Amino acid sequence: MHTMWKGTISFGLVNIPVKMHAATENKDIKLRNLHKECKTPIKYEKTCPNCDKEVNNDDIVKAYEYAKNKFVVLDDEELENLKKEQNDKAVEIMDFVKLDEIDPIYFEKSYYLSPNDGGAKSYSLLRSALEETGKIGIAKMMIRSKEQLAVIRIYENTLVVETIHYPDEVRDVKDVPNVPAEDTNAEKELETAKMLIDQLSASFEPDKYQDEYRTALMELIEAKKEGEEVTTSTEQPKPDNVTNLMDALEESLNRAQKDKKGKTKRKPAAQTKEKKKVAK
């Protein structure tokens, strides 16, 4: 697993040399843009609209636009010095809190932590302490030139860094338009909705959720590679003609109950064979 960051995690006087690895990966299928006529990949060139000419990386500087068409230019040395100043600091856990105190809206990206040379014992110590107390650590760290707020927690048997948004990065819910201020649901509608939720409740099993679009796209690509004739249906399933909220809830509840009964009736083959043996 590729190491993307090395550093030290500390709490109190305990220092843990660690390596950081990406815990997730983007499996989106990337499609290239080709020239329709000759099937050549399209290039996207960097040009200056004022000078009307192409520019290369050496001709580009970074700047902050503080007002319309007004910039503060920052050179590479200044940015590198700031970055080095932050990278040289150990990642210090500032607070320990309960995980359920943080709303999921704050969470951003996950990284695995592994102990670096000489860090196995202190790594194990922090893992055990977090597990025994049921707490997670809150820390700041530099990742890819950005100071990140992060939590350090346990996932299975491994320490995980979970980057989280700063409070000012989460937009105010008051700015969301058309949110009803009060609930105006009829009691029967609410009870039926709760029954539907109960019927559809289950334990979270991540393996049962698949990216069906990605799978279908890869099948299409593989079929085209093999030279097969491919036809794609454009007909979409028609929704039931249900316009009343209560009718929709009751119909959904009926379907959920039928699905649940169907799953209950289907017994594992091994269990059926066992019953046959007993009957003999």
Rank of each mutant, 00 (worst) to 15 (best):
K30F: 11
I138D: 12
D59R: 03
Q199L: 05
T192C: 11
A193C: 04
K224H: 08
K70E: 11
L245P: 03
T192A: 14
V170T: 12
D100G: 02
N50D: 11
I102M: 05
M142P: 05
I29G: 04
C38K: 05
V176Y: 02
A23R: 03
N244V: 14
A150M: 13
R266A: 14
E131V: 04
G262H: 00
K225N: 15
E54Y: 12
K70S: 15
F107Y: 15
T158I: 08
A269T: 04
E169K: 12
Y155E: 14
Q236M: 03
A193R: 02
T192R: 00
L220Y: 11
P180S: 01
C48W: 11
E131W: 09
T40V: 11
V176L: 14
G262M: 00
I164A: 08
V160M: 06
D168R: 03
A181D: 05
P115C: 12
V91M: 15
Y166N: 04
L126F: 11
L13Y: 10
D117N: 09
P167H: 15
K263N: 00
L130S: 06
V97F: 03
R144N: 08
A248V: 02
L74M: 04
L125A: 11
V55N: 08
L99M: 06
E78G: 10
I105W: 11
L79D: 03
Y64H: 10
W5D: 01
F96A: 01
R255V: 04
H2Q: 03
A202T: 10
Q148D: 06
I164L: 08
L245V: 15
E169L: 11
V151E: 01
T24I: 08
N57F: 06
G262T: 00
E212D: 08
F71I: 12
K62N: 11
K121Y: 02
R144A: 14
V161A: 09
H165E: 08
K30T: 03
K188N: 10
N185T: 14
P268W: 07
